[in-house]
Simulated scan of single mutants.
Amino acid sequence: MAGVLEGTVALITGASSGIGEACALTLAEQGAALALAARRVERLEALADKVRDAGGTALVLEADISSEEQARAAVDRTVSELGRLDTLVNNAGLMLLGPVALAEPTEWRRMVDINLVGLFNTSHAALPHLVHAAEQQPRRVADLVNIGSLAGRFAFGASAVYCATKFGVGAYSEALRQEVATRHVRVSVVEPGSVDTELRTHNRPEVQEQLGARFSGIERLQGADVADAVSYIVTRPRHIAVSELLIRPTEQV
């Protein structure tokens, strides 16, 4: 698997399905060695086998990134076993929707813990290694890509806390970008619209039914479409940074 990212290492959270799995396959095609982090280790093993069968390198990391200790351990193992860290894709996320008045506060905390605190944990642990990689060959640049959402630009009813977490991802990404830009660590946020993944299946049945009806008339994005956007960002030359990329189905209004 030779490509622009040959000789680099990428850590992807939430890699067991959907956008994370697609990012893994796409970055492996570009030559990156992969560290695959998620809680569902059996799915990670299957993905790792697929990468290895195609000639790539994959390290499986069972981790719940909402735990600071587990997030740091995932980063540390990536560097110790693969030698470096050039790219972090913060993809792990949770979308639990419904009106505020009918919501379970435990669901709010789960979204905040994964969508925000987990992203903070991995970013904080990875940052010194990304700075170091940006000082080294082969590319002398590093990337931290956060997967946000269209809901991080526009607020929608029945999505209040989910929107709040994704607006937070955008704000955090821009603030961090300003802090590390001169070190050649590029911080980017990718904001997909409706994507056909299992993310919506975490919701209650009535919410899943509403989501299905809302998007039944359009061709939704696939995980590979978002992975293609991530690949575009991290394969730019050293002097080019794509700070934000909004991608949505053509028919989504």
Rank of each mutant, 00 (worst) to 15 (best):
I233T: 12
N90H: 05
L61S: 03
A171G: 15
A35H: 04
A134M: 03
V60G: 04
V131P: 02
A133Y: 06
S159C: 13
S17P: 05
I114W: 01
L61D: 10
V169P: 07
V89E: 11
D76M: 05
S149W: 04
S194V: 15
N90G: 11
Q70S: 14
E45C: 03
T197K: 08
A224R: 15
S67K: 10
Q178S: 08
A101P: 07
R140P: 00
Q30A: 11
R84S: 15
R220L: 15
Q137C: 05
G157V: 10
G93K: 10
V79F: 07
L144M: 08
E209W: 07
E135T: 10
A58Y: 02
A101K: 11
A229Y: 10
N91D: 12
N90I: 09
I218Q: 08
A74L: 04
E81T: 08
D113H: 01
R84Y: 09
H239R: 12
A213F: 05
R43M: 05
S80W: 05
A58C: 04
H129E: 09
E104R: 15
E191I: 07
A158I: 02
A71H: 13
F167L: 01
G18A: 04
L221N: 06
L246P: 05
N90M: 06
S188P: 13
V145W: 00
L176E: 08
F154Y: 09
L11G: 07
L61A: 00
A15W: 01
A155V: 07
R109N: 10
G193E: 11
A151W: 05
G83H: 08
H239G: 06
G83C: 14
L59S: 02
L245V: 07
L199Q: 12
T106Y: 07
E135P: 02
V117G: 01
R84K: 09
A142C: 01
F120Q: 13
A58N: 04
R238L: 06
I65P: 13
R204L: 14
R220H: 13
R177M: 12
E42H: 10
S173Q: 09
V185Y: 01
L59T: 03
A125Q: 00
E81G: 07
T182I: 04
E62L: 06
R200A: 13
T13W: 01
S67V: 10
L245P: 11
V242L: 13
T57F: 03
P105K: 08
G18F: 09
S216P: 13
A142M: 04
P138V: 02
L199C: 06
T250G: 06
A103F: 15
L36M: 00
A155M: 00
N115K: 03
G83D: 13
P99W: 10
G118M: 04
